Amino acid sequence: MAKILALDTSTDACSVALYLDGEVKEDFRVIPRQHTQQLLPMVQAILADAELAIADLDAIAFGRGPGSFAGIRIATGVAQGLAFAAELPLVPVSTLAAIALQQHQQGHERVIAALDARMDEVYWGAFRLDAGLPVLVDQERVDAPANVALPDEHVWHAAGSGWRYLEDMSAAIQSAVNEPDVECYPRAGSMASLAAAAFEKGDMVAPEDALPVYLRDEVAWKKKDQQ
Rank of each mutant, 00 (worst) to 15 (best):
L40T: 11
Y165A: 13
V137G: 00
L7W: 08
A198Q: 07
Q37F: 05
Q226G: 07
D120G: 04
A53R: 09
V213G: 00
D209N: 15
R110Y: 11
L18V: 02
A17D: 00
C14S: 11
V148I: 15
D58Q: 10
F84N: 07
Q103S: 08
A149S: 07
P41K: 01
N178Q: 13
C184I: 09
D203N: 12
L133A: 05
Q103N: 03
S94T: 09
A79R: 02
L40Q: 04
E140W: 03
E179C: 04
A117C: 12
P180S: 07
T76P: 04
C184E: 14
A17W: 01
R128G: 04
A48H: 13
W156D: 12
P41F: 11
A158P: 04
V111A: 10
A126I: 05
D152L: 09
S170P: 13
A85S: 15
K222H: 10
D217F: 08
G81N: 08
H104T: 11
L18P: 05
G125D: 05
P151I: 08
V30P: 13
M1I: 07
N178V: 15
L18S: 01
D181C: 09
M204L: 07
W221H: 06
L88N: 04
V93R: 03
D12M: 08
V24L: 00
A79D: 01
P32T: 06
L211E: 10
D143M: 05
Y214P: 03
R73W: 15
E87R: 14
V91I: 15
A146Q: 10
A195K: 11
T76V: 02
E140L: 03
A85R: 14
K224F: 04
G81T: 07
N147T: 06
D152Q: 14
V182I: 15
V142L: 12
V91D: 00
V43N: 02
A195W: 06
A55I: 13
A144G: 01
P145T: 05
V135C: 00
S68N: 12
S190A: 12
L136K: 09
L96D: 03
I60R: 05
S193G: 00
E87M: 11
A59T: 13
V111H: 12
L96M: 03
Y19P: 06
G22A: 11
A53M: 09
Q38F: 05
